[in-house]
Amino acid sequence: MGKKLNFIIVILTGLMLFNSTLFAASGGFREMIYDPGTLPPTDSHIKVKVGEPAPDFTLHAVSGKVISLKDYRGKKVVVLSFIPAAWTPVCSDQWPGYNIVDSLFKRYNATILGISVDNIPTLYSWTGQMGKLWFEVLSDFWPHGRVAETYGILRSSGTSERCLIVIDKKGIIRYIDVHDINKRPPLEDLIRELKKVGEKE
């Protein structure tokens, strides 16, 4: 009887493990997503403007590097992609989309700096589900949301807006899209702006 029970337990455990593997390979990422529901589209007051120098910052990246915005001056166009929070619905899709268009960014000599107010361990776990990202992901965790606050996109809840900021090689802001937090910015809008910046340079 005891042997039979052990056998059943082993089989059931095996089945559970097998199922969880399948799950992880097929949309399992979304099973771990916390859905906050529909939020107010924006909840902050932007402090930067197109045509002005982008405020510099230094943040730790998931890759282990310490990255400053000024490192890219004269070298690359930078897209700051602020996302509100890890493990939430729209954010979990946005960067995997950017991850397959690295050639488009390269065409315009641009890179992305993904920024979130989450801490490094959280960002490490979350972005690990996306596959290997070609761009740096920075943590604006401590002092909490300081960079988001500097740019005027820190929401009252402590997360940032869903915001795209394009900065040219001279460090000047060329495009700002404080997007509805509930929606994903269309890729073509961003690529069009990169093209414009590229043409000016």
Binding site: A25, S26, F29, D93, P96, I100, Q129, G131
Partner: peptide, 10 residues
């Protein structure tokens, strides 16, 4: 599918 979905990409 979705262009943004890593599992669809895979």
């Amino acid at each position: 599918f979705s262009m943004y979905c890593p599992y669809c990409q895979h």
